[in-house]
């Protein structure tokens, strides 16, 4: 089943066409890779699908519903989460607090008891809710093995752990679809290997993953299907082995051979 798709999505900046009539699909339950040379329009496509940017033309559908132009917080609440190419943690908050922010919009609902009664009641309510959110955040930290760092400031974490924390925070919003923008960027081979295992575990939770990545070993190893962008255009789609042998893709990455 198609969980998310774009139809002829186009984004231009003045005369520059960053994304041109791209029809991208993400199948439910699979890991989809989005690859292409630098400047191919991968992150722009991500921004247009997560509400951070508005497409010039074309549509985005999530679970069959048109979400084009929805604001980012609304799209998040529908079940789409993402991470960034350059890590964007709340640097001055602790590791636990970062994940707790991801639980924010899940709180304050279905909690009518005691809420309107008295100030004391609502104060206790807030504390109870706070503890619950804290416990849920800790569960995600355990998923990533980050609980030893729970009380560290996010900015003091080693780089690889910062990447994992950003994913943990995204997962805390309980998405059905997770976008990862270059999750392995700057990681050493050991960190990359553990990241690959983590991404598989995320898929096994039933979460659909779409990732942008330049590390071909990672992409070819864990993606079920791959879409390739070049100069804003979708030039190929297929399984890793199909993509590996596709002459258009080889040309995009290596250039055309002189005859």
């Amino acid at each position: 089943m198609i969980l998310l798709e774009t139809k002829a999505l186009t984004r231009t900046y003045g005369g520059v066409v960053a994304v041109s009539k791209v029809s991208f699909q993400a199948q439910e339950g699979l890991i989809t890779g989005l690859i292409g040379p630098n400047g191919a329009g991968k992150t722009t496509l991500f921004n247009n699908m997560t509400g951070l940017d508005l497409p010039t033309a074309g549509k985005v559908y999530f679970k069959g519903k048109d979400i084009t132009g929805h604001s980012a917080h609304k799209i998040c609440r529908m079940g789409i989460a993402r991470t960034f190419q350059n890590i964007r943690l709340f640097k001055e908050l602790t590791v636990t607090e970062n994940v707790m922010v991801g639980r924010h919009f899940k709180t304050g609902r279905n909690v009518n008891h005691g809420r309107t009664l008295t100030a004391v009641g609502s104060y206790l309510q807030m504390n109870r809710e706070h503890q619950q959110v804290h416990a849920e955040a800790m569960r995600w930290l355990e998923f990533f093995g980050l609980e030893p760092f729970a009380n560290e400031l996010a900015k003091n974490l080693p780089y690889g752990h910062q990447r994992e924390l950003e994913i943990a925070r995204a997962l805390a919003t309980e998405p059905t679809l997770l976008f990862l923008d270059e999750p392995a960027a700057g990681m050493n081979p050991h960190e990359t290997a553990s990241l690959m295992a983590t991404i598989r575990r995320i898929r096994d939770l039933g979460i659909t993953v779409v990732l942008i990545e330049h590390d071909m070993k990672l992409v070819m190893n864990i993606c079920d299907t791959i879409s390739v962008l070049n100069y804003g255009e979708n030039i190929a789609n297929g399984t890793p082995s199909e993509i590996r042998g596709n002459p258009l893709v080889i040309e995009a990455y290596l250039g055309k051979e002189e005859e």
Binding site: L52, C76, R77, R88, F90, K91, V101, H104, R169, T173
Partner: peptide, 22 residues
């Protein structure tokens, strides 16, 4: 309060706060 916390998150990073559903 919830709104107070949302305020602090927003002041730290507006785009990320949006992506957290705020």
């Amino acid at each position: 309060t919830r709104i107070g916390k949302a305020m602090r998150a927003t002041s730290l990073d507006q785009d990320t706060a949006k992506l957290m559903g705020i």
